[in-house]
Design a protein around this nucleic acid. Structure first.
Lengths: 184, 184
DNA sequence: TATCCCATGTAACGAGTTACATGATTCT
DNA sequence: AGAATCATGTAACTCGTTACATGGGATA
C-alpha cells in the first residue's frame, strides 16, 4: 500500500531533515503545515507504518543522558517512493479536489526531483487549472439565475482562488527560468 | 454525535431541495461540489446516519411504475442542526485548515440563516483571514532564506490565495449591503 | 516537591474508500 | 435480447480523531 498524504508529508520533511516524531509534531503545529494535525495519534502510527514499509528507519539517539528520542531517516526506497509521488502527472481531479495536495507536492520538489520536474509540474498545473476555471465559469454562467446569493458568491470565491493560482503558477515558472539563467 | 462535513453538505442540499441519494450523488459529481466524493459507499451510509439521528426523513416515492426512489427531506431538528453549524463563530483553526468548510458553510447560508448571519460571518471571516495572512507573512519573512525555492513558492501561493479571499470577503460584504438597500 | 515541558505510545471509535452486489427500466 | 443507466445498498479495510497513559528531565 502506498502512504497516505500524511505519510508523504512525513517522507518529504524527513528527506529535508532527519527528525524525531516530536520534532515533526512541532513542525505541524508551528509552521504553515498546520493543515495537518499534530496529534500523536496520527503521527506515531504513521511513522510506524512508514518504518514497516522500509521507507524510513528510526534509530534511538544515544545522546549523553538525554531523554530517549527516535530519529527517523528516509531510506533509499523512501526516496524512490517520494519521487514517484512527486512525479505523478497533474490530473483534473487533483485540482478539482482543492489542490492542497498538489501544493504539498510542489513544496517538496526542490532537492528531491530537481528543477526540470518542477517546471514540468508548473506547466501542467497551469493547464489543468485554466481548464478547470473555464468549467466553473460555464457552470456559473448557466446557473447564476437559480443560485442563492451566498451560493453564487461562494462559487465566485472558488473561481477567484483558482485564477490566483494560475497567475502564481506563471510567476513561479518565470522564477525558475530566471534561476536557470543564473546557474544553468 | 454531530454530523460530519459530508453530513452537513447533505443537510444543506436537502434543505434547498428534497432529493434521493442518487440525485445527491449526481450533484456531487456534476457541480462544483466535486470536492466531495460521489461514491455510494459514502453517500448512502451518511444518509442513513442522518435519518437515524432524525435530522432527515426518507419516504419511498410512490410514483406510477417508477423505480423505487427514496426521497429525503430535512426535519425541523435537521434545520436546527444546520443552523447551529452555520452560526458557529469563525475561528482561526477553520481558516488555517484551508477554509474549504467555511466556504461550504457560507454557500448554504442564504435561505437558512438570513442576511444578518451571512454579514456577520463575512466580517469575522475577513478578520480571521487578515490575521492569518499576517502570521504567514511573518513566517515567510523569517524563514525565507533557509527555505528551498519550491517550498517558498508554495507558501507564497498559499498567502496569495488567502489574500484573494480577503478581497472577496470585502466584495461580498458590499454585495450584501447593496442588496439590503434595494429591499431592506 | 510540584509543575511544566519533552517524548512516545495505545485503544476505541467514526467515517471515507474501494469493490462488490442486486435489480428495475430504458435505449438500441 | 443485450447494453447502458437508474437506484440502492453492503463489507472489508485504512486512517485520522479523541482521549488516555506513562515517565524522565527541567524549572520554580
Amino acid at each position: 500500500m502506498s502512504p497516505s498524504t500524511l505519510g508523504y508529508a512525513l517522507l518529504g520533511l524527513l528527506r529535508e531533515q532527519p527528525s524525531s516524531g516530536y520534532d515533526l509534531r512541532k513542525t505541524f503545529s508551528l509552521t504553515p503545515l498546520v493543515t495537518f494535525s499534530d496529534s500523536p495519534g496520527a503521527i506515531y502510527p504513521a511513522l510506524r507504518r512508514l518504518e514497516e514499509a522500509r521507507l524510513i528507519r528510526g534509530t534511538i539517539e544515544d545522546g549523553s543522558g538525554l531523554r530517549r528520542r527516535k530519529i527517523f531517516r528516509v531510506t533509499a526506497a523512501g526516496i524512490a517512493e517520494l519521487r514517484k509521488w512527486l512525479n505523478q502527472p497533474v490530473v483534473r481531479d487533483d485540482v478539482a479536489r482543492g489542490g492542497d495536495e498538489l501544493m504539498l507536492r510542489f513544496a517538496f520538489m526542490d532537492g528531491a526531483v530537481g528543477r526540470v520536474a518542477a517546471v514540468r509540474f508548473l506547466k501542467s498545473l497551469e493547464r489543468e487549472l485554466s481548464s478547470y476555471v473555464s468549467t466553473l465559469r460555464e457552470y456559473l454562467a448557466e446557473h447564476r439565475k437559480e443560485m442563492p446569493l451566498s451560493g453564487r458568491l461562494a462559487l465566485e470565491s472558488g473561481i477567484r482562488g483558482y485564477e490566483t493560482r494560475v497567475v502564481w503558477a506563471r510567476d513561479a515558472l518565470a522564477t525558475y527560468k530566471r534561476a536557470q539563467r543564473k546557474r544553468p
